[in-house]
């Protein structure tokens, strides 16, 4: 008990001593970075709709183009530099997801196609897919139950 209290005390002390980023400044930068990326996405969506594509297909093109852009920027070592400035503004959009797949692919190729890239490409993004699919499955199961029991039409 005593040791736990000591450890908690040290943790609280360290928290006070450790400098933190200027939050309002970082929020501002994240706002701009994220806003720009979303605006680019909006531009793609608008072009697709003008070309007469349906909503889901437009969404697909937007995702695809943003992913390609992010992968290229990752390869040229530009996306990490934007992230240093933009923080969450580069993590939150789908471009952050793409970067988290591209970065391991590029890094781990030295360990081989199967054991390197193959095994480790999802090192960072794996949880997003696992928990995303799992959550949608749980929600879907709940939805199906509600339908089958007549609570929803």
């Amino acid at each position: 008990m005593d040791k736990e209290r000591q450890q908690q005390a040290y943790e609280n002390y360290v928290k006070k001593k450790t400098p933190v980023h200027n939050l309002p400044a970082n929020m501002g930068k994240a706002f701009i970075a994220g806003g720009v990326i979303c605006t680019v996405g909006q531009a793609v969506l608008n072009i697709c709709e003008k070309l007469g594509l349906d909503k889901d297909v437009s969404g697909g093109w937007t995702s695809m183009i943003l992913v390609v852009a992010s992968v290229l920027l990752t390869g040229f070592n530009i996306y990490p530099r934007i992230a240093k400035w933009g923080g969450a503004g580069t993590l939150v959009p789908i471009t952050g997801f793409a970067n988290s797949v591209a970065a391991p692919a590029i890094e781990y190729k030295k360990e081989g196609q199967v054991m390197g890239i193959g095994c480790k490409i999802f090192t960072i993004a794996g949880p997003v897919i696992l928990y995303g699919i799992f959550t949608s499955w749980v929600l879907g199961f709940g939805y199906w139950l509600l339908k089958v029991s007549g609570i929803i039409a």
Binding site: T74, G75, N77, Y79, A83, K84, T123
Partner: peptide, 9 residues
Amino acid sequence: FPLGYANQR
């Protein structure tokens, strides 16, 4: 993280 990963330290 792998070097290309875009994160803030």
